[in-house]
Amino acid sequence: MLLDLSEMKEMCLAVQKWLNERFCNSDYWGISQLHGILIRQGTCENCDKCDYCVVGSDNSMAKEYEIVKEEKGFLVSR
């Protein structure tokens, strides 16, 4: 089965979204392994920019946020 250009583009975008969700969400775990806390309001996939801050796990700023899964499946700090 051959795909036309628009179908290929749609498939590539779906794969990119799937990968971005997994990589972006795993950032929280990776930073926690370094005793840090990722504070991120949005990613490139669900916002117009990837806006983030990393603080130490004992930093008082870390306690001001909770990690939630937003409607598109991305983890964000609120």
Rank of each mutant, 00 (worst) to 15 (best):
M1L: 06
L3H: 07
L3D: 08
D4G: 01
D4P: 09
D4Y: 04
L5V: 04
L5A: 05
L5R: 12
L5K: 08
M8W: 08
M8P: 11
M8L: 11
K9H: 01
K9A: 13
E10W: 00
E10H: 07
M11Q: 14
M11E: 09
C12K: 12
C12T: 14
C12D: 10
C12N: 15
A14I: 00
A14V: 01
V15M: 09
V15D: 08
Q16G: 07
Q16C: 11
K17F: 06
K17P: 06
K17L: 05
L19V: 03
E21F: 00
E21G: 11
E21S: 14
F23I: 15
F23M: 14
C24T: 13
N25C: 12
N25G: 13
S26Y: 15
S26F: 12
D27S: 07
D27R: 02
Y28L: 14
Y28K: 12
Y28R: 14
W29K: 14
W29E: 15
G30T: 05
G30S: 15
S32G: 11
Q33F: 12
Q33Y: 03
L34T: 03
H35E: 14
G36S: 05
G36I: 05
G36Y: 02
I37L: 06
I37R: 13
L38V: 13
R40F: 10
R40Y: 05
G42W: 01
G42V: 04
G42M: 02
G42Y: 10
G42P: 14
T43Q: 06
T43S: 14
T43L: 03
C44E: 04
C44L: 09
C44N: 10
E45N: 13
E45A: 15
N46M: 10
C47H: 06
C47W: 01
C47P: 00
D48I: 07
K49Q: 05
K49M: 07
C50Y: 02
C50Q: 03
C50W: 00
C50E: 05
C50R: 00
Y52S: 15
Y52D: 09
C53K: 01
V54S: 03
V54L: 08
V55D: 06
V55E: 09
G56D: 11
G56Y: 00
G56Q: 12
S57M: 14
D58V: 06
D58N: 07
N59D: 15
N59M: 04
N59L: 07
S60V: 03
S60K: 03
S60Y: 05
S60W: 02
S60T: 02
S60A: 08
M61F: 09
M61P: 00
M61V: 09
M61L: 15
A62I: 03
A62Y: 03
E64R: 02
E64H: 02
Y65I: 07
Y65Q: 07
Y65R: 01
E70M: 03
E71G: 06
E71S: 01
K72L: 11
G73W: 01
F74V: 08
V76C: 07
V76F: 02
S77P: 10
S77I: 00
R78E: 06
R78L: 14
